[in-house]
């Protein structure tokens, strides 16, 4: 379970006993490597949780920390330190992969704030109709029907020009809707990064709904692309 560990609360270095940030990979006093921190991913990079990120700076920081953590540098260190260099490197890479991807970053931040996202949490809010817009549902269903029709026509060795034209049109439309969702998400990033508590909570709710919508659209575009490309 994810939770926000206050990385400002210091922990003692195993080597020099000086207090350092709980999220630090290295002691700020003696520079010794530390066991994998328990905090969230943003703090590993010395960042506060935020959605607009400077990806170039993030990558530079990844390279800098990776070099410092490289197992070769710990060949003669204690067994603990050798182990930590591997564990810290794995954590750093997980953190980077999560934060660099805009959707994974958004999902991660929402999870940090208690949102239940992912298949394992499915069905919990099922009585909340706002989560599944009915008009979109109709469209998703109809398009899936058309896709199936087209696949079976192809299997029979036929091409239905009309149907293919429809699907190309539909793909264009859903691509456009995806772009719209992504624009909306970015607007919410801003609202979250700059907002107060109330504004953040509102943005979190909106973002969770946008991610749901995006998943639908994304599956559709993927299926249409596959079928048209087959």
């Amino acid at each position: 379970m994810l939770k926000i560990v206050d990385s400002a609360v210091p922990v003692a270095c195993w080597s020099c006993s000086a207090a350092h940030k709980a999220s630090a990979l290295f002691c700020s006093n003696c520079s010794k490597i530390q066991p994998p921190p328990s905090g969230e991913y943003f703090s590993v990079f010395g960042l506060r949780p935020q959605l607009n990120l400077d990806l170039d700076a993030l990558e530079r920081e990844l390279h800098r920390l990776s070099r410092r953590l490289h197992p070769d540098r710990f060949a003669r260190a204690s067994e603990n330190e050798r182990e930590w260099s591997l564990a810290d490197t794995a954590l750093l890479n997980d953190a980077y992969r999560t934060l660099k991807d805009p959707l994974r970053r958004t999902e991660y931040l929402l999870k940090l704030h208690g949102a239940e996202i992912g298949e394992e949490h499915a069905g919990k809010d099922r009585r909340d109709p706002s989560r599944v817009p009915p008009d979109l549902l109709e469209e998703v269903f109809d398009l899936n029907m058309q896709l199936e029709e087209m696949r079976s026509a192809r299997q029979a060795g036929e091409t239905d020009q009309e149907l293919e034209k429809n699907l190309v049109e539909a793909k264009k439309k859903f691509d456009g809707l995806l772009e719209e969702v992504d624009r909306d998400l970015r607007a919410q990033w801003q609202a979250w990064d700059e907002g107060d508590q109330a504004a953040r909570e509102a943005a979190q709710k909106t973002m969770a709904a946008l991610l749901d919508r995006r998943r639908y659209l994304n599956n559709l575009v993927r299926d249409v692309t596959e079928t048209l490309g087959a």
């Binding site: 949490h121 599944v132 549902l137 109709e138 998703v140 269903f141 998943r215 639908y216 599956n219």
Partner: peptide, 13 residues
């Protein structure tokens, strides 16, 4: 009845 699960994108009629 037409329902959907946003978590996985499934639709069921």
């Amino acid at each position: 009845g037409l329902v959907g699960a946003p978590e996985c994108g499934d639709v069921m009629r």
